[in-house]
């Protein structure tokens, strides 16, 4: 490893191409932390946005008018406003309204940090789209299949869990994957509230080293690879979920 690190230091000395996060341990740790934060934030948001989608789509089928209206209101609000404004709203508006707690140094700090707010905000943002995606999938499940389950004595919840969702899931996987890829790209917005994710750490590095061009190229490639891996995994998953002789 050290040989490689030294090579990049020489590269900088000979050509001026400065990639400090490869030869400098401090910058390297910053970049690794940023990368891990991006991955972790993405995973948390993927998970919760899918949960929100599943529950929201179930509630949209409720027989209570107000439940359906509430879910629709949520979807409209989060689809028709910019995610950056949502993030600021959560962090600065709701965040400052919440009580503060005493921290380890005897000072006051907010109950939720910037990472938590980014996770909440982006989960709700992507979740709104996921509700609609799941809803369309549920509508594509034939009524007759659901009826067969009813005739066998399945309860409403059992039908949703065992029949409707698994079938709807397969129908919507392409749309869902699309939305989840967008979500991963949108995690860069967390930069705006100083979540130390990849873009934020890159910014720290270019401020210290004045190597904006190199960092921009690196960032573009890093996201290209990260999202590429996700897309590859999703495509494999889509193939694995395929039912023989169906769809």
């Amino acid at each position: 490893m050290d040989v490689i690190y030294e090579w990049f230091r020489l590269l900088y000395q000979e050509t001026g191409i400065n990639l400090p996060f490869l030869y400098d341990e401090y910058d390297r740790n910053r970049m690794v932390d940023g990368f891990l934060t991006t991955v972790w934030l993405s995973l948390v948001c993927l998970f919760f946005s899918v949960i929100i989608g599943v529950i929201g789509a179930w509630l949209q089928g409720s027989s209570f008018k107000w439940t359906r209206r509430f879910v629709n209101g949520y979807i409209q609000l989060f689809r028709n406003t910019p995610p950056l404004v949502q993030l600021y709203f959560f962090y600065f508006a709701i965040g400052t309204l919440l009580p503060r707690v005493e921290n380890d140094w005897g000072g006051q700090s907010p109950i939720l940090g910037s990472f938590a707010w980014a996770a909440i905000s982006l989960s709700f943002f992507a979740g709104a789209f996921n509700v609609e995606i799941f809803r369309s999938g549920i509508e594509a499940v034939p009524k007759s299949t659901v009826e067969a389950a009813e005739a066998l004595g399945f309860s409403k919840l059992q039908i949703y869990r065992d029949i409707t969702l698994p079938l709807a899931f397969r129908v919507v996987l392409p749309a869902l994957n699309n939305n989840l890829v967008n979500l991963v790209k949108t995690t860069t917005l967390a930069y705006a509230i100083a979540v130390p994710e990849m873009l934020y750490e890159a910014n720290q590095i270019w401020s210290d080293n004045v190597n904006v061009t190199e960092m921009m190229i690196f960032l573009l490639l890093a996201y290209f690879v990260l999202v590429g891996v996700l897309v590859g995994a999703m495509n494999r998953w889509e193939r694995a979920m395929k039912i023989p002789g169906y769809g």
Binding site: S144, T145, E147, L167, Y246
Partner: peptide, 21 residues
């Protein structure tokens, strides 16, 4: 109690309506 009724009464449909997955 629909569940009790449906334990007693089975049904077979024109279009089979099997669970495709």
């Amino acid at each position: 109690n629909k569940l009790e009724l449906r334990k007693k009464v089975g049904m077979v449909f024109q279009q089979y309506n099997l669970f495709p997955h």
